[in-house]
Design a protein around this nucleic acid. Structure first.
Lengths: 282, 282
DNA sequence: CACTTTATGAAATAAATTTACATAAATACT
DNA sequence: AGTATTTATGTAAATTTATTTCATAAAGTG
């Protein structure tokens, strides 16, 4: 919790002198962060140790640490929240709301991801003989994006958004192949079947999906970026953005694992596009 | 400006010792705000006065004041750009870095977008007879996603990631049609041509691209979500996520403009998927 | 109203930061 | 190349700032 809120909340439980400090701080926190303990004590008409004790009471290590917390409370204030779009919102308003929701959800997704599992997934991917990315609907886009990234690594990579192709591809998979199945809910029957087929054919299955879902049960490794999907508009929004961030992370882990020499290759791929572009004038 | 960004920006103008401090700070700013000047100096293998001078160089009053600024940079809501992944990062570290960059870039994109133009674009889209989304490479994914969203609105919508199909489609366009061209750089020759063809055939062209680019010049409306693309790994990352957020915004604007009755339709589309899913047990 | 607990402040101590100065490194100019 | 000059860095002392200790005062309790 924000330390300013904390001061307000606990105000009633403070002693007489502590209240004096609290009042001075609440009156102009921005001034306090630049004041020494001596000057704050003087402003509040109490002694320096009292200020120090006040800081500790608020679970900080001492006065300087307290100022740090105060500074953070003052910075930008508003944490990201999921804000719902309203019927009468202006373009300005819904633009802000959507960005804020997206940010809030990314923050949430970040917290929900387990670095150990990511590391394991990267392990598996770097050793793969062939990588397949499968998704349907909005998740197809994520699979599509993953292909666009991983093909640069010069590993055999395929992507299908057609359930039949996915099935056929899975049936042909075997040990050493990695199949990445992407589904926000993890409840899309055909995709669960595809995962099952892949696994029965000894492929390693990585799921980017909800941890407790039927799809998750078919996976060797489950990565689940959790978001509070905005269901107001019945469209996948935050989920796919979090999934894309995860793809970035996996791709980054992959390149890091392969070392710097490997990254020169990436530059080549990028440079190969140059001739199809208009040059910058600057 | 955020002091962390400032350190990153001015890094090249630092002296040898200053760079050492900067590196330590950038590597783990959260640790630094709890460190004394002595411990930071030791970590960076330089003397305490050098740290102090470093702080002043960044327009702070001294080390404690510098820490205050740093704390504010780190506070909620101010993620920072350009946290470059490092060769030796752990999964935990690069995961954090990528999320932070993504958040910072979304924040940046949000600031760069003009609500008036968004409103205009929504206007045009709601009145369109047919909407086409065109992109190549990483932007193809964004176009793909846009189709996935807009087809729910029951308007004729197409998406192509094939340059020939894009050309043919553009040649056949006419007044009342809207073509949305997506390209981060706006310098991909074939796509610029496509935009030109569309415009010559009286379609309205909306560009999701860099404002000053050749592609932007061919557009009737230009929406340019600006991001500081991380070029370390030669892969499009933040740009496409910002573009997707913009698609969400346009789609949201579209549904709001169409009114609540229209949104019942969206629910129907979503419900139509139900039979293909495993039910939740809860 | 005595007694205990809790709160507060003065002074001493400890810690951290800054200044002043000396030396070393880098750069520019013969 | 060699010297002069500027710029960068470190050592040690001085200063500022924060914390601890301990004594005293206020508040609460039976």
């Amino acid at each position: 919790m924000n330390i300013l809120e904390k001061i307000t909340n606990e105000f009633d439980s403070f002693s007489k002198s502590e209240r004096k400090v609290a009042e001075v701080i609440l009156a102009s926190p921005a001034t306090v962060i630049h004041a020494s303990i001596a000057s704050l004590a003087k402003q509040a008409n109490i002694s320096e140790p009292t200020v120090n004790r006040f800081c500790r009471r608020l679970d900080t290590k001492g006065y300087p640490d307290f100022k740090l917390h105060l500074a953070q409370s003052l910075a930008n204030g508003t944490p990201y929240v999921n804000r719902h779009v309203d019927e009468n919102d202006t373009a300005e308003e819904y633009t802000t709301k959507i960005f804020e929701s997206t940010l809030a959800n990314l923050e949430m997704a970040r917290k929900s991801l387990d670095a150990t599992l990511i590391n394991k997934a990267v392990d598996v991917l770097t050793q793969a003989r062939k990588i397949s990315f499968f998704g349907l609907g909005a998740s197809a886009i994520v699979a599509h994006d993953a292909q666009n990234k991983f093909f640069r690594f010069n590993v055999p990579v395929v992507y299908f958004d057609d359930i039949l192709m996915q099935r056929m591809s899975s049936i042909n998979s075997s040990q050493g192949d990695v199949v990445v199945v992407i589904s926000h809910t993890g409840r899309t029957k055909p995709l669960v079947e595809v995962a099952n087929i892949a696994r029965e054919n000894d492929a390693t299955v990585i799921g980017i999906t909800d941890a407790g879902s039927p799809l998750a049960k078919e996976c060797n490794i489950v990565l689940s970026p959790t978001v509070a999907e905005d269901t107001d508009l019945y469209m996948p929004m935050a989920s796919r953005i979090a999934q894309l961030a995860l793809i970035d992370i996996l791709a980054t882990g992959f390149t890091l694992r392969r070392g710097s020499k490997f990254r020169d290759n990436l530059k080549k791929v990028k440079d190969s596009l140059r001739s199809s572009r208009f040059e910058r004038k600057e």
